[in-house]
């Protein structure tokens, strides 16, 4: 599901690859937020959380998604999901 899978898997059907590329592309297109900005945001989030606990920055993921309405199209405002694996709660 995550962004990193694309880079980890080398051999892959090109149709699946196209779909994964599009998903990422469209997230940034839809909110006009570039992958570079997302990467910066991720690093900033990691830095702030690191003040309080030890986190696995290499495996964290962030994603901006939109909740979909029943009839298909997006209605609600976008949501930022961050998946931050904690290595040690004490710091």
């Amino acid at each position: 599901m995550g962004v990193l899978h694309i880079f980890q898997k080398k051999e892959k059907d090109s149709g699946k690859l196209a779909k994964d590329r599009l998903k990422i592309l469209l997230i940034s297109d839809r909110i006009s937020c570039s992958p570079e900005t997302m990467e910066k945001l991720k690093m900033d989030i990691a830095r702030v959380i690191s003040k309080y606990m030890k986190v696995d920055t290499g495996n964290m993921e962030i994603q901006i998604t939109k909740e979909e309405a029943k009839n298909g199209r997006v209605v609600k405002s976008p949501i930022l999901y961050a998946n931050v694996p904690i290595l040690d709660l004490k710091h």
Partner: peptide, 21 residues
């Protein structure tokens, strides 16, 4: 043929992404 061998997005892939009827 291309969809079947995994080298083209299927119709459901496309409609999932674009999320319109």
């Amino acid at each position: 043929d291309m969809v079947r061998r995994g080298d083209m997005m299927s119709v459901s892939d496309v409609s999932d992404i674009l999320a319109i009827p």
